[in-house]
């Protein structure tokens, strides 16, 4: 074939889009969800296809969209909350960070309200106003 080195996907007039790496979501939403379905010799049984479809919908669709479609089982399954923490190094780190952020927010709030041990700017301002008012 001639011109084999030409990019397949013309990128002219499409600023900011890499010519080589097509967005995976663009490909998956097409090759898995679209394209003509014709029976082959090697079949995947229906149960797996259904599970696969659910999984792929989660990957492809946004969370809102999944909810609209009635897919929300992860919300009610409490066992899912603990899964993945053991073998995924990033999970505990992220939880810790979330906890830290929450603690910081609480501290700020306490300062704003002038309770707790906080003696930052917010609480001293508030105190002054209370005395004069």
């Amino acid at each position: 074939m001639e011109g084999s080195s030409l990019p397949i996907r013309p990128s002219g007039g499409l600023p900011g889009r890499p010519a080589e790496q097509t967005n995976l979501a663009d490909i998956l939403e097409r090759v898995l969800d679209k394209g003509i379905v014709i029976a082959g010799d090697i079949q995947i049984n229906l149960l797996e296809v259904e599970l696969l479809t659910i999984k792929l919908r989660l990957l492809i669709a946004s969370v809102d969209r999944a909810r609209e479609m009635g897919i929300n089982w992860w919300e009610s399954d409490s066992t899912l909350q603990s899964i993945g923490q053991g073998d995924d190094d990033s999970q505990p780190g992220r939880l810790e960070q979330e906890n830290r952020e929450l603690r910081e927010r609480l501290e700020r709030l306490e300062k704003q309200l002038g309770v707790g041990n906080g003696d930052g700017e917010e609480s001293s301002k508030k105190g002054t106003r209370a005395k004069s008012g």
Binding site: M1, I8, R9, T22, L24, I27, L28, R30, V31, L32, K34, G35, I36, V37, I38, G40, D41, I42, I44
Partner: peptide, 27 residues
Amino acid sequence: ARDHEAVLERLLADGTMVPLRLCTIYE
């Protein structure tokens, strides 16, 4: 998926096609 897509895109340049869904396999 990317390999499948790459083949389709090459063939697309040469004419009309009906793309098949991923995992259509014959013996």
